[in-house]
Amino acid sequence: MKGKFTNVGIVIVSHSPLVAKGTADMVRQMVGDRVPLSWCGGNPEGGLGTNAAGILAAIEAAWSDHGVAVFVDLGGAETNSEMAIEMLGEPRSRLVAICNSPLVEGAVIAAAEASGGAPLAKVVATAEELSPS
């Protein structure tokens, strides 16, 4: 799988499986399969919550050697995503960034940027422009 994609990957993390999947659907509608995409929503039982192991698997599934941008909703999603990224280990962890942006808008605009071949820093910056600072 490694190196298969030349575009930055997108990972959606939400406390809700429905929100995560729905957001991923919206991204997919926008960019088709030109961007590696995966999502993780909810706790391991499928209820509302977060799940570091699931986030790690989602990052693996959307892996691109050009980097992966992760979009999160509330605090626990961010903290668990940080842990998952650390567990990837160096040097791959350096290729993954958590975007400080609204989940849906951020993921869609980032994916649009990524589908044009933009590097990770540009993909992240474009999404973060949406953030109220």
Partner: peptide
């Protein structure tokens, strides 16, 4: 970390 979730797992 792998099982708790929430903020508590990472903390």
């Amino acid at each position: 970390v792998m099982s708790v979730g929430g903020a508590a797992g990472p903390l």
